[in-house]
Design a protein around this nucleic acid. Structure first.
Lengths: 182, 182
DNA sequence: CTTTCGTGTCAACACCTGGTGACTTATCCT
DNA sequence: AGGATAAGTCACCAGGTGTTGACACGAAAG
């Protein structure tokens, strides 16, 4: 077993990675500092040293970037395709958002982080393509996306799990268009 | 303070009521048997005696009935109104569904209970009005409804919290119609 | 070589959790 | 009245939690 290099920066990153996976799989409460530290092969006390507390660890781990592109000039017909593509990239490529969703169900700091994502990322991105009521539209789009993610990745409702990207695209497209443009 | 009558049946009911409120407010993990027993003014050991375990308590507490009416013969244009009305009745009148949603994010038994609700209540009810792909349609309707509930009652996204029933009706109506009939 | 300092470990704390089994107390039946 | 039985209490356990402060190690600087 190669000795872990004594490099604080990479240890920190490893801890954040492990934390994201644990929070995503187990939720906030069932994720223990000991387990996260164990995944990295490090003492639990180190986690507290670096992040102050479990809540601090979560806050750093759940700081996520949706990577929404600038939607200005995207044709109305292509909007939902762009959004659904982004959805799959975010949800299937990175455990962070699942961690945030799971945790947000019970933790107020996680719910707050989620509200921040909408206020600082979804809302502004959609404001570029809707002339009015951007916050309302962003919230409805968010509810749609989160509902789908909840059903597919958390509850694992069989019809949603079985759905291909194209099928999801076909179903969600008109809904998103409705919330964005009507 | 009037002495609590030594009536097992009503004590059981009181415990289930308190459990529903606690699970709804705090989620599965943060709800403690001691807190539930304390709400009722009873010894924690009694909870175990009646329900076997915390999981047993949750299972009984989360056994819910959506009360979906028979949709046969409901005109297509009225379908979404019926469903949204039912939504508000269930979500704002009874903490049970919120408890189930919060818990389902982290507990596998809760997620299973939720899948059961879809398989035994939502699916069959919707099968009466859709000729094909009833499970898929039920899952999409469920994702829509759960997403809205998540945004409004759990994350408390301001635009969703501020929404009146009529506004919710106006936004969700076309979406539900799309999932049910297209 | 010694000092210094960042990196990480160790042992322990105070507390809370679900759960158990023996006990007490109220209620009902004869 | 008095005993049987249901209803509820009590003290306790074993294990796990976040968090703490003192300590050990290793590399880089003087």
């Amino acid at each position: 077993m190669p000795a872990r290099p004594r490099d604080a920066a990479s240890t920190r990153d490893d801890l954040l990675d492990a934390a994201r996976r644990r929070f995503a799989a187990d939720g906030y409460d069932r994720t223990t500092i000991r387990a996260v530290a164990g995944d990295v092969g490090v003492d639990p006390a180190l986690v507290i040293r670096y992040f102050g507390s479990k809540e601090g660890l979560f806050t750093r781990a759940a700081d996520l970037d949706l990577g929404l592109p600038d939607l200005t000039g995207v044709r109305a017909g292509d909007l939902s395709k762009v959004l659904v593509d982004r959805f799959f990239a975010v949800w299937e490529g990175d455990p962070t958002f699942l961690a945030l969703l799971r945790a947000a169900a019970t933790s107020e700091v996680a719910a707050d982080a989620m509200r921040g994502v909408f206020a600082r990322q979804v809302g502004p991105a959609l404001a570029a393509v809707t002339d009015d009521r951007a916050p309302e539209r962003a919230a409805l789009v968010g509810a749609t996306v989160l509902g789908f993610a909840l059903g597919r990745y958390v509850l694992r409702l069989p019809p949603l799990v079985a759905m291909t990207r194209d099928q999801a695209q076909a179903w969600l497209g008109p809904t998103l268009r409705h919330y964005l443009l009507d």
